[in-house]
Design a binder for these strands. Structure first.
Lengths: 129, 129
DNA sequence: CTGCATCCTTGCTGATACTG
DNA sequence: CAGTATCAGCAAGGATGCAG
């Protein structure tokens, strides 16, 4: 079953994290997105142009970046500002809601740097068997 | 490019979160996994049998659950204990490393419940255009 | 510069059936 | 009970070309 299905089926909050329609799952879906967290992290430093974000995040395709930015915009986490210049210039910036995620992102980053060695060691040990 | 590729290509830490081989990305990959976080949350309450986990998490298939548990075990987040009884009984339990993730999971959950209303409202507003 | 449209490949995912 | 094996369907993601 896909997440799109969950969203279509219900938007209600039922308080059970393990239920299909739980908002936690929907948030997990966004956080879990491979690029969303990285984009939010980039925007931590203030507004950024499309090209700047693309240049900062290695390995993201144009398609995925645009798709991710649209999703973040839809969820009210970032704003998109188009400047009517030639060539066009588009700025993305975190909203208040988006900034409320920064603590989480920092915690995620922190856990990663703190425990990555353990995880890699565990993987090596597991694979050695 | 897939994550598997990253892991194969390099296991080094380079300190740049936006670089392809950054450990942050590898951790994000696991956190980002649809089921990993839910499984860790279930195991918060202590050891659980395979069937208990399956019954708690709605919508997870047997295949995905097994796959998720194996990945968590490989990463050193969960231990798997097989009891030689008939019928067999398999318990899963968080390791110390796994428990170090609990704060993050709680923060994630907390953000979800706190801001889900805003996100859903933003989506409605966006879709209405 | 920004980003939409299209094609195309990959592999995730769920359903089903079977085993120790 | 707790898996493994296999298969079909579909969606995610990348590459390319074009437009405003």
């Amino acid at each position: 079953m896909k997440w799109g299905t969950y969203l279509r089926e219900s938007k209600q909050v039922d308080g059970n994290m393990y239920a299909k329609n739980c908002p936690s799952r929907q948030v997990l879906d966004r956080i879990g997105d491979r690029w969303s967290v990285l984009v939010v992290a980039v925007l931590r430093g203030g507004p950024r142009r499309y090209g700047e974000i693309a240049a900062t995040i290695e390995g993201v395709s144009q398609k995925m970046l645009t798709q991710t930015l649209r999703a973040l915009e839809r969820d009210g986490l970032v704003t998109r500002t188009v400047h009517a210049t030639v060539p066009p210039r588009v700025d993305y910036e975190l909203t208040g809601l988006g900034r409320s995620l920064l603590g989480l992102v920092a915690a995620l980053e922190n856990w990663a740097y703190t425990h990555m060695g353990d995880v890699l060691a565990a993987r090596d040990a597991y694979d050695a068997r």
